[in-house]
């Protein structure tokens, strides 16, 4: 059987006055119901464009979209704008980083949930309101019966994020995409929201995509992880693959850049030199080569030939010219010891 969500070589390019922006340039993954995919990458790596692309929000906006998105047996890249719009809310829904910009300031939180619910459910206002109160209660808003009549600005940041989750879940979507859902929140509130998303996903058995730049957040929730760099998926595998046997030099760099609380502090962090590429001017060959400490090992190829995303073992995909054996030897003998030495 084909997977619930199957994305194949998705590309989303925007023609602009400065040139073609290759925001998403080869993203491949699949996801089953009840499972969580984490998408990580630095800012501008194409995470948000990917998620909006799945929701069909780039359609009709001058973007060049290619590749395939199969959702529950239906192909969406070729589907009409109206058709995909009809799937939003019920089949798939999204949680944004900034709930204030996603909610209307002049309508109460309750009215917004009611409206979202009534698009897909032919019920009376009173029934929809009961549902809204129920949803607010489920996401942990205290006194939902009273808070349903509040305006978004009357909520704290954490409550607004909960309200948006309630809104996204109100039609029981089968695919939920959360784009940096906790980035703007304090760490104790972030922990509450991550717990909530985990619990709700179990309850609703939805497929969840969580997008973040925080490796800790993906590790908390994800079954599978996709690492993006310069619009491309550069490594994709199970959470264990990415954290315990990563094979791409960029993933190594991310791990080395991050101080972590669960280990003795290392003397120094091991950053990646340079900065992320502009997507108008992605370096030729391997997009990571100007920053890669191992570029020399792949000689001219690093600068001239774009590496393909290739399977190394059991569904673990890596986009790098080095051989799997060479990468594994580097990880075991050099990278891993350096990350663990205090």
């Amino acid at each position: 059987m084909s997977p619930f969500l199957d994305v194949k070589d998705l590309k989303i390019h925007f023609p602009t006055d400065d040139g073609l922006v290759r925001s998403v340039d080869g993203v491949t993954f699949s996801l089953e119901r009840g499972k969580t995919l984490g998408i990580v990458g630095e800012s501008g790596s194409g995470k948000s464009v990917t998620s909006l692309g799945i929701l069909g929000l780039h359609k009709g906006r001058g973007a060049n979209i290619s590749g395939e998105i199969w959702l529950d047996g239906e192909e969406l890249v070729g589907a009409s704008q109206e058709h995909v719009r009809g799937l939003r809310g019920k089949k798939m829904a999204m949680i944004f980083q900034d709930p204030l910009s996603a909610m209307h300031p002049f309508y109460t939180v309750g009215d917004q949930i009611i409206e979202a619910y009534r698009i897909h459910n032919k019920v009376s206002k009173a029934v929809a309101k009961k549902h809204a109160i129920d949803m607010l209660g489920r996401v942990g808003i205290p006194e939902p019966g009273r808070r349903v009549d509040s305006y978004p600005h009357e909520f704290s940041g954490g409550m607004r994020q909960r309200a948006m989750i309630a809104m996204a879940l109100s039609c029981d979507p089968e695919l939920l995409i959360a784009d940096e859902p906790t980035t703007a929140l304090d760490v104790t509130v972030q922990a509450q929201i991550l717990d909530l998303m985990r619990d709700l996903q179990r309850e609703f058995d939805s497929a969840l995509i969580i997008i973040t730049h925080d490796l800790g957040v993906v590790a908390e929730l994800s079954d599978d992880i996709l690492v993006m760099y310069g619009g491309k998926c550069i490594e994709y595998g199970s959470a264990d693959d990415i954290f315990y046997r990563p094979e791409h030099p960029y993933t190594w760099g991310l791990l080395g850049s991050m101080p972590r609380l669960d280990r003795e502090p290392t003397e120094r962090l091991l950053p990646i030199k340079g900065s992320p590429p502009s997507l108008i001017n992605v370096p030729p060959g391997c997009a990571f080569h100007p920053r890669c400490p191992y570029a020399e090992r792949t000689g001219d190829k690093a600068r001239t030939v774009a590496p393909a995303l290739a399977e190394t073992e059991g569904g673990h995909l890596v986009r790098c010219h080095m051989s799997p054996a060479e990468r594994r030897a580097l990880w075991e003998n050099e990278i891993k010891p350096a990350l663990e030495t205090p």
């Binding site: 760490v187 104790t188 972030q190 922990a191 590790a219 908390e220 959470a239 972590r260």
Partner: peptide, 15 residues
């Protein structure tokens, strides 16, 4: 204690 325990840890097996 609460702050420290809330920090997400990049160790999926530990979660």
């Amino acid at each position: 204690n609460a702050l420290l325990s809330a920090v997400p840890v990049p160790d999926p097996r530990g979660r």
